[in-house]
Nucleic acid binder design. Structure first.
Lengths: 151, 151
DNA sequence: TATTGTTATACTCTATAACTATA
DNA sequence: TATAGTTATAGAGTATAACAATA
Protein backbone atom coordinates (compact mmCIF):
# COMPACT_ATOMS: atom_id res chain seq x y z
CA UNK A 1 0.00 0.00 0.00
CA UNK A 2 1.96 2.96 -1.26
CA UNK A 3 0.95 6.55 -0.77
CA UNK A 4 0.88 8.50 -4.02
CA UNK A 5 1.73 11.72 -2.20
CA UNK A 6 5.40 12.64 -2.33
CA UNK A 7 5.06 15.73 -0.16
CA UNK A 8 3.09 13.86 2.46
CA UNK A 9 5.67 11.10 2.46
CA UNK A 10 8.34 13.70 2.90
CA UNK A 11 6.49 15.09 5.89
CA UNK A 12 6.27 11.59 7.31
CA UNK A 13 10.01 11.08 6.98
CA UNK A 14 10.62 14.44 8.54
CA UNK A 15 8.49 13.52 11.54
CA UNK A 16 10.31 10.24 11.89
CA UNK A 17 13.67 11.93 11.72
CA UNK A 18 12.43 14.45 14.22
CA UNK A 19 11.66 11.80 16.77
CA UNK A 20 15.00 10.19 16.24
CA UNK A 21 16.79 13.48 16.76
CA UNK A 22 14.92 14.01 20.00
CA UNK A 23 15.64 10.55 21.29
CA UNK A 24 19.32 10.62 20.43
CA UNK A 25 19.74 14.12 21.78
CA UNK A 26 18.09 13.15 25.03
CA UNK A 27 20.28 10.11 25.42
CA UNK A 28 23.47 12.08 24.79
CA UNK A 29 22.39 14.72 27.29
CA UNK A 30 21.66 12.08 29.91
CA UNK A 31 25.09 10.56 29.39
CA UNK A 32 26.72 13.78 30.49
CA UNK A 33 24.58 13.93 33.63
CA UNK A 34 24.28 17.68 33.47
CA UNK A 35 20.76 17.61 34.82
CA UNK A 36 19.65 19.62 31.84
CA UNK A 37 16.70 18.99 29.56
CA UNK A 38 16.82 19.25 25.76
CA UNK A 39 14.75 22.44 25.73
CA UNK A 40 16.95 24.04 28.39
CA UNK A 41 19.97 23.06 26.37
CA UNK A 42 18.51 24.70 23.31
CA UNK A 43 17.81 27.88 25.22
CA UNK A 44 21.36 27.92 26.51
CA UNK A 45 22.76 27.51 23.02
CA UNK A 46 20.43 30.20 21.75
CA UNK A 47 21.76 32.54 24.39
CA UNK A 48 25.21 32.25 22.89
CA UNK A 49 23.86 33.44 19.54
CA UNK A 50 22.87 36.80 20.92
CA UNK A 51 25.64 39.32 21.31
CA UNK A 52 24.00 41.10 24.21
CA UNK A 53 21.80 39.46 26.82
CA UNK A 54 18.38 39.08 25.18
CA UNK A 55 15.01 39.82 26.73
CA UNK A 56 12.60 37.01 27.52
CA UNK A 57 10.54 38.09 24.52
CA UNK A 58 13.57 37.87 22.23
CA UNK A 59 14.18 34.32 23.33
CA UNK A 60 10.55 33.39 22.81
CA UNK A 61 10.61 34.82 19.30
CA UNK A 62 13.86 33.11 18.39
CA UNK A 63 12.78 29.77 19.82
CA UNK A 64 9.36 30.14 18.20
CA UNK A 65 7.52 29.47 21.42
CA UNK A 66 5.14 31.46 23.57
CA UNK A 67 6.82 33.70 26.17
CA UNK A 68 5.31 31.65 28.97
CA UNK A 69 7.34 28.64 27.82
CA UNK A 70 10.57 30.59 28.22
CA UNK A 71 9.77 31.41 31.84
CA UNK A 72 9.84 27.75 32.81
CA UNK A 73 13.07 27.08 30.95
CA UNK A 74 14.83 30.08 32.46
CA UNK A 75 13.52 29.07 35.90
CA UNK A 76 15.28 25.74 35.53
CA UNK A 77 18.51 27.18 34.19
CA UNK A 78 18.57 29.84 36.87
CA UNK A 79 18.01 27.24 39.56
CA UNK A 80 21.07 25.36 38.33
CA UNK A 81 23.10 28.57 38.22
CA UNK A 82 23.63 28.60 34.46
CA UNK A 83 21.75 31.78 33.78
CA UNK A 84 20.94 34.99 35.55
CA UNK A 85 17.87 37.25 35.32
CA UNK A 86 18.99 40.87 35.13
CA UNK A 87 16.44 43.70 35.18
CA UNK A 88 16.91 46.19 32.37
CA UNK A 89 17.59 49.62 33.88
CA UNK A 90 16.20 51.38 30.80
CA UNK A 91 12.83 49.66 30.92
CA UNK A 92 11.81 48.11 34.18
CA UNK A 93 9.35 45.74 32.55
CA UNK A 94 12.17 44.03 30.71
CA UNK A 95 14.31 41.23 32.05
CA UNK A 96 17.53 40.31 30.32
CA UNK A 97 18.99 36.85 30.51
CA UNK A 98 22.72 36.50 31.03
CA UNK A 99 24.92 33.45 30.79
CA UNK A 100 26.91 32.76 33.95
CA UNK A 101 30.37 31.20 33.96
CA UNK A 102 28.69 27.99 35.02
CA UNK A 103 26.42 28.32 32.00
CA UNK A 104 29.35 28.89 29.68
CA UNK A 105 31.07 25.83 30.99
CA UNK A 106 27.92 23.75 30.49
CA UNK A 107 27.75 25.11 26.97
CA UNK A 108 31.14 23.61 26.22
CA UNK A 109 30.00 20.14 27.24
CA UNK A 110 26.76 20.67 25.35
CA UNK A 111 28.52 21.44 22.12
CA UNK A 112 30.45 18.20 22.36
CA UNK A 113 27.26 16.28 23.06
CA UNK A 114 25.45 17.92 20.21
CA UNK A 115 28.24 17.20 17.79
CA UNK A 116 28.23 13.54 18.83
CA UNK A 117 24.46 13.34 18.47
CA UNK A 118 24.56 15.04 15.08
CA UNK A 119 27.23 12.68 13.83
CA UNK A 120 25.26 9.68 15.00
CA UNK A 121 22.21 10.90 13.14
CA UNK A 122 24.07 11.96 10.03
CA UNK A 123 26.28 8.88 9.87
CA UNK A 124 24.59 7.51 6.73
CA UNK A 125 25.38 10.67 4.76
CA UNK A 126 28.60 11.63 3.01
CA UNK A 127 30.10 15.06 3.55
CA UNK A 128 28.68 16.17 0.25
CA UNK A 129 25.22 14.97 1.16
CA UNK A 130 25.39 16.73 4.51
CA UNK A 131 26.22 19.92 2.73
CA UNK A 132 23.29 19.46 0.39
CA UNK A 133 20.98 18.74 3.33
CA UNK A 134 22.28 21.79 5.14
CA UNK A 135 21.52 23.95 2.14
CA UNK A 136 18.01 22.60 1.82
CA UNK A 137 17.27 23.04 5.52
CA UNK A 138 18.65 26.52 5.28
CA UNK A 139 16.17 27.30 2.54
CA UNK A 140 13.40 25.79 4.62
CA UNK A 141 13.97 27.31 8.03
CA UNK A 142 16.51 30.01 7.39
CA UNK A 143 19.70 30.41 9.39
CA UNK A 144 18.90 33.92 10.41
CA UNK A 145 16.09 35.09 12.58
CA UNK A 146 13.57 35.32 9.80
CA UNK A 147 10.70 33.20 10.94
CA UNK A 148 6.96 33.46 11.21
CA UNK A 149 5.38 34.26 14.53
CA UNK A 150 2.13 32.80 15.68
CA UNK A 151 -0.60 33.82 13.32
CA UNK B 1 29.19 34.50 17.31
CA UNK B 2 29.23 31.71 14.75
CA UNK B 3 29.45 28.05 15.53
CA UNK B 4 32.25 26.33 13.67
CA UNK B 5 30.37 23.05 13.76
CA UNK B 6 28.49 22.26 10.56
CA UNK B 7 26.95 19.05 11.85
CA UNK B 8 25.78 20.69 15.02
CA UNK B 9 24.27 23.53 13.04
CA UNK B 10 22.54 20.99 10.87
CA UNK B 11 21.08 19.38 13.97
CA UNK B 12 19.90 22.78 15.13
CA UNK B 13 18.13 23.42 11.85
CA UNK B 14 16.60 20.00 11.98
CA UNK B 15 15.20 20.66 15.43
CA UNK B 16 13.83 23.98 14.30
CA UNK B 17 12.20 22.40 11.29
CA UNK B 18 10.84 19.71 13.53
CA UNK B 19 9.05 22.19 15.72
CA UNK B 20 7.64 23.94 12.72
CA UNK B 21 6.32 20.68 11.31
CA UNK B 22 4.63 19.91 14.61
CA UNK B 23 3.06 23.32 14.91
CA UNK B 24 1.79 23.42 11.36
CA UNK B 25 0.53 19.87 11.52
CA UNK B 26 -1.33 20.61 14.73
CA UNK B 27 -2.93 23.70 13.27
CA UNK B 28 -4.08 21.86 10.16
CA UNK B 29 -5.52 19.07 12.26
CA UNK B 30 -7.38 21.53 14.44
CA UNK B 31 -8.86 23.20 11.37
CA UNK B 32 -10.57 19.97 10.43
CA UNK B 33 -12.03 19.58 13.92
CA UNK B 34 -11.63 15.86 13.86
CA UNK B 35 -10.86 15.73 17.55
CA UNK B 36 -7.71 13.84 16.75
CA UNK B 37 -4.20 14.50 18.03
CA UNK B 38 -1.06 14.43 15.88
CA UNK B 39 0.15 11.19 17.41
CA UNK B 40 -3.22 9.53 16.89
CA UNK B 41 -3.17 10.73 13.33
CA UNK B 42 0.22 9.19 12.82
CA UNK B 43 -0.94 5.89 14.24
CA UNK B 44 -3.95 5.90 11.95
CA UNK B 45 -1.77 6.54 8.93
CA UNK B 46 0.62 3.85 10.04
CA UNK B 47 -2.27 1.41 10.21
CA UNK B 48 -2.86 1.90 6.52
CA UNK B 49 0.71 0.82 5.77
CA UNK B 50 0.16 -2.65 7.16
CA UNK B 51 -1.58 -5.08 4.88
CA UNK B 52 -3.10 -7.07 7.75
CA UNK B 53 -4.17 -5.63 11.09
CA UNK B 54 -0.94 -5.30 13.10
CA UNK B 55 -0.40 -6.22 16.72
CA UNK B 56 0.16 -3.53 19.34
CA UNK B 57 3.80 -4.55 19.40
CA UNK B 58 4.11 -4.11 15.62
CA UNK B 59 2.76 -0.59 15.89
CA UNK B 60 5.15 0.25 18.72
CA UNK B 61 8.11 -1.00 16.70
CA UNK B 62 7.08 0.86 13.58
CA UNK B 63 6.37 4.09 15.43
CA UNK B 64 9.57 3.68 17.42
CA UNK B 65 7.85 4.12 20.74
CA UNK B 66 7.38 1.96 23.79
CA UNK B 67 4.33 -0.37 23.65
CA UNK B 68 2.73 1.51 26.52
CA UNK B 69 2.55 4.62 24.37
CA UNK B 70 0.51 2.76 21.77
CA UNK B 71 -2.09 1.75 24.36
CA UNK B 72 -3.05 5.35 25.01
CA UNK B 73 -3.22 6.21 21.34
CA UNK B 74 -5.37 3.20 20.51
CA UNK B 75 -7.58 4.01 23.51
CA UNK B 76 -8.28 7.40 22.02
CA UNK B 77 -8.86 6.13 18.51
CA UNK B 78 -11.10 3.35 19.74
CA UNK B 79 -13.14 5.79 21.81
CA UNK B 80 -13.80 7.84 18.69
CA UNK B 81 -14.71 4.71 16.73
CA UNK B 82 -11.86 4.88 14.27
CA UNK B 83 -10.17 1.70 15.30
CA UNK B 84 -11.15 -1.66 16.74
CA UNK B 85 -9.24 -3.98 19.08
CA UNK B 86 -9.60 -7.55 17.84
CA UNK B 87 -8.20 -10.47 19.85
CA UNK B 88 -6.05 -12.81 17.81
CA UNK B 89 -7.62 -16.29 17.86
CA UNK B 90 -4.23 -17.96 17.33
CA UNK B 91 -2.59 -16.34 20.35
CA UNK B 92 -4.83 -14.97 23.03
CA UNK B 93 -2.20 -12.61 24.34
CA UNK B 94 -2.16 -10.75 21.06
CA UNK B 95 -4.48 -7.93 20.09
CA UNK B 96 -4.79 -6.80 16.52
CA UNK B 97 -5.81 -3.30 15.56
CA UNK B 98 -8.27 -2.86 12.75
CA UNK B 99 -9.33 0.27 10.94
CA UNK B 100 -13.07 0.88 11.01
CA UNK B 101 -15.01 2.55 8.19
CA UNK B 102 -15.07 5.64 10.35
CA UNK B 103 -11.27 5.40 10.62
CA UNK B 104 -10.90 5.03 6.88
CA UNK B 105 -13.02 8.09 6.33
CA UNK B 106 -10.94 10.08 8.82
CA UNK B 107 -7.87 8.91 7.00
CA UNK B 108 -9.08 10.55 3.84
CA UNK B 109 -9.43 13.92 5.55
CA UNK B 110 -6.09 13.38 7.22
CA UNK B 111 -4.32 12.84 3.95
CA UNK B 112 -5.64 16.12 2.66
CA UNK B 113 -4.57 17.91 5.81
CA UNK B 114 -1.14 16.36 5.70
CA UNK B 115 -0.67 17.30 2.08
CA UNK B 116 -1.64 20.88 2.85
CA UNK B 117 0.69 21.01 5.82
CA UNK B 118 3.53 19.50 3.81
CA UNK B 119 3.05 21.99 1.04
CA UNK B 120 3.06 24.86 3.48
CA UNK B 121 6.32 23.67 4.96
CA UNK B 122 7.94 22.81 1.65
CA UNK B 123 6.77 25.96 -0.13
CA UNK B 124 10.28 27.46 -0.34
CA UNK B 125 11.60 24.43 -2.24
CA UNK B 126 11.34 23.67 -5.93
CA UNK B 127 10.16 20.27 -7.08
CA UNK B 128 13.73 19.29 -7.75
CA UNK B 129 14.83 20.33 -4.29
CA UNK B 130 11.99 18.40 -2.71
CA UNK B 131 13.11 15.34 -4.55
CA UNK B 132 16.66 15.84 -3.33
CA UNK B 133 15.45 16.33 0.23
CA UNK B 134 13.31 13.22 -0.04
CA UNK B 135 16.31 11.22 -1.16
CA UNK B 136 18.44 12.47 1.69
CA UNK B 137 15.76 11.81 4.29
CA UNK B 138 15.32 8.39 2.79
CA UNK B 139 18.98 7.68 3.36
CA UNK B 140 18.70 8.98 6.90
CA UNK B 141 15.57 7.29 8.17
CA UNK B 142 14.80 4.70 5.53
CA UNK B 143 11.42 4.33 3.89
CA UNK B 144 11.06 0.73 4.87
CA UNK B 145 10.73 -0.70 8.32
CA UNK B 146 14.42 -0.94 8.99
CA UNK B 147 14.95 1.02 12.14
CA UNK B 148 16.76 0.62 15.42
CA UNK B 149 14.84 -0.35 18.50
CA UNK B 150 15.64 0.99 21.92
CA UNK B 151 19.16 0.06 22.84
C1' DT C 1 -4.16 51.58 26.37
C1' DA C 2 -0.18 48.52 25.04
C1' DT C 3 3.77 45.86 26.46
C1' DT C 4 6.51 42.51 29.41
C1' DG C 5 6.69 38.88 32.00
C1' DT C 6 4.39 36.03 35.30
C1' DT C 7 0.92 32.87 38.00
C1' DA C 8 -2.45 29.31 37.22
C1' DT C 9 -3.95 25.61 34.63
C1' DA C 10 -4.31 21.94 31.25
C1' DC C 11 -3.16 18.83 27.60
C1' DT C 12 -0.12 15.87 24.56
C1' DC C 13 3.49 12.77 24.25
C1' DT C 14 6.30 9.52 26.01
C1' DA C 15 9.01 6.98 29.55
C1' DT C 16 9.75 3.36 33.47
C1' DA C 17 8.05 -0.05 36.58
C1' DA C 18 5.02 -3.38 38.21
C1' DC C 19 1.20 -6.36 37.18
C1' DT C 20 -2.02 -9.84 34.50
C1' DA C 21 -2.90 -13.22 31.24
C1' DT C 22 -1.34 -16.05 28.44
C1' DA C 23 2.30 -19.27 26.16
C1' DT D 1 10.33 -18.48 32.30
C1' DA D 2 9.25 -15.35 28.36
C1' DT D 3 5.88 -12.60 25.83
C1' DA D 4 1.88 -9.18 25.03
C1' DG D 5 -0.47 -5.76 26.68
C1' DT D 6 -2.05 -3.20 30.50
C1' DT D 7 -2.51 -0.16 35.00
C1' DA D 8 -0.08 3.34 37.59
C1' DT D 9 2.84 7.07 37.67
C1' DA D 10 5.90 10.77 36.30
C1' DG D 11 8.13 14.34 33.71
C1' DA D 12 9.08 17.23 29.58
C1' DG D 13 7.22 20.49 26.57
C1' DT D 14 4.09 23.76 25.32
C1' DA D 15 -0.43 26.20 25.07
C1' DT D 16 -4.23 29.61 26.65
C1' DA D 17 -6.07 32.87 29.90
C1' DA D 18 -5.94 36.12 33.51
C1' DC D 19 -3.10 39.29 35.93
C1' DA D 20 0.63 42.73 37.76
C1' DA D 21 3.83 46.08 36.86
C1' DT D 22 5.39 49.40 33.84
C1' DA D 23 5.32 52.44 29.84
Amino acid sequence: MTTPDPDGLLAEQLLRLTRRVHRIQKRHLEQHELGITPAQSRLLRTLAHFGDPPRMADLAAYLEVVPRAVTTLVDGLEASGRVRRVPDPANRRVIRIELTDEGRSTLGVLRGARRAAAQEILAPLTGEQREALGGLLDTLVGTEHTHARHC
